[in-house]
């Protein structure tokens, strides 16, 4: 296993099975992983912890992924953001980038692609 000491990722995903799979893949890749089931829980965690990257689903209960991105942007929190969403229309993608997303991946997804994207973004620093 590669060690990525101190690199913490927050996975924000309401589908438990997928959240669990993402966590497993990222932990196997050597990352420290935290999870949140909804946008509000994610926002609380972001305020109280330091993450290098957040993997965000768009359609979340309580606070959606766009609202979460907006909060992160308005508070100028220095963290990489990768959106993983089932919506592939331009308007969703553009909105996510306008709200500061560093990358936008669509579901269904290939875990290897997600991992490579995260590795690359974190290597860029």
């Amino acid at each position: 296993m590669t060690t990525k000491t101190g690199q913490r990722i927050l996975v924000v995903e309401d589908e438990k099975a997928i959240q669990s799979l993402e966590r497993d893949k990222l932990e196997r890749a050597g990352y420290e992983v935290d999870t949140a089931d909804d946008g509000r829980q994610a926002w609380e965690k972001i305020q109280n912890n330091e993450y290098e990257l957040i993997l965000i689903d768009i359609f979340l209960p309580k606070m959606d992924g766009f609202q979460l991105l907006n909060k992160i942007k308005s508070q100028r929190i220095p963290v990489k953001k990768v959106v993983l969403s089932s919506k592939s229309q331009d308007r969703y993608i553009n909105k996510a980038y306008n709200l500061g997303a560093d990358d936008y991946l669509t579901k269904p997804f290939d875990s290897k692609v997600v991992l490579t994207t995260i590795d690359n973004l974190l290597e860029q620093g």
Binding site: E15, A17, I18, K107, P108, F109, D110, S111, K112
Partner: peptide, 15 residues
């Protein structure tokens, strides 16, 4: 019931 979310959300070698 167990496999459905994975089939709905995954492509690539895992799927």
């Amino acid at each position: 019931n167990f496999f459905r979310p994975y089939l709905d959300n995954l492509i690539g070698s895992d799927r």
